[in-house]
Amino acid sequence: MSKYGDVAVIADQIQNDLRPVTFELLGAANDLAEKLGVKVLAIVMGHELGEIPQTLIYNGADKVYVVDQPELKEYSTLPYRRAAIAVLESLERPPHIVLCGATTLGRDLAPRIASYFETGLTADCTDLDIGDYVHKGKADPTKVGTYHNCLYSIRPSFGESLKARIIGPWKNPQMATARTGALVPFKTDTTRTGKIIRVTAKFEETDFRVRVIETAREVSDALDLLKAKVIVSGGFGLGGPEGFDLVRDLASIFGESAVGSSRKAVDSGWIPYSHQVGQTGKTVRPALYIALGISGAIQHRVGMSNSATIIAVNKDETAPIFQFAHYGIVGDLYEVAPLLKEHLKQSMSN
């Protein structure tokens, strides 16, 4: 038996649809578990989950803890909190690490669980690892020491062009949320086997202080952004909300395309938040990313720098985006984008 507890992943599931981040978390969890010599657990909550527990095994879980009760049909903070705590407290040994998606579900649920266990939680990680840590600080003598096999939660430090490694070996489980698109998903293997364990949560009346009236899911822009092969994004350089007509126009020539945006354009009210790419928006990795009038601040960069090919159009040749784009055109985007559309369309039809 390993010195450490297992690595647990809380499955990100909405209306029996496992979100992509779940597979990415399972991929990372397998790497972490291998380094620690432990198993990967998945925790899935919902109702009439059908094949989902088996899917989790095929995608990297060694053991799946299932809470399948009618109260969990729709995501709601307090019942899901109760169910997750029921599973974690049912374990003989608390997990060394618990991972959640940095989604509207994980960012809602994980802080409640971390606060309940009075443990550390690092938000929106772009990378996870295992390593040692030496604490020398004098301010808190209780922390001083050398710690082995800590969770390294790596995240960008916004606005400061830095990445930070967050450490918290003093409390277990060590918790982190990770952004969709940041980690490499587990490679599905339908020959994998694993154990499915059913857990029943005991709800209290106070768990239903929030009542879900309706969950309306549409094929939204947000969904498109994560699945799109081509993303055309606009930034502050568009000059105004009407600039997004240009962005949409260029995006329309590609098959599986979506419209993205920088934070500044969202903050200016030019386009809804669901289009935002970056640290506080979506992390995307399309085959082609075209950035129109986006300067490329760290905030945006961390959300799209893994795109296979990046084309940037900006009138300022010193814009940071030209440091990591693959192709750059310096010029007026209102002149360049229509030309780009015309030429790309032409070469696609050939």
């Binding site: 009075e118 443990t119 550390g120 939680l121 690092t122 840590y133 604490h135 600080g137 301010a139 808190d140 209780t142 922390k143 390294y152 939660s153 960008p156 430090s157 062009s161 830095l162 990445k163 930070a164 490694r165 967050i166 450490i167 918290g168 003093w170 409390k171 760290i298 960069r301 440091q323 990591f324």
Partner: peptide, 16 residues
């Protein structure tokens, strides 16, 4: 610091 279960272990610049 005493009440915080996490600390910043290290920071580094993003590779250009």
């Amino acid at each position: 610091l005493m009440g915080s279960p996490t600390v910043v272990g290290k920071t580094w610049k993003l590779g250009e």
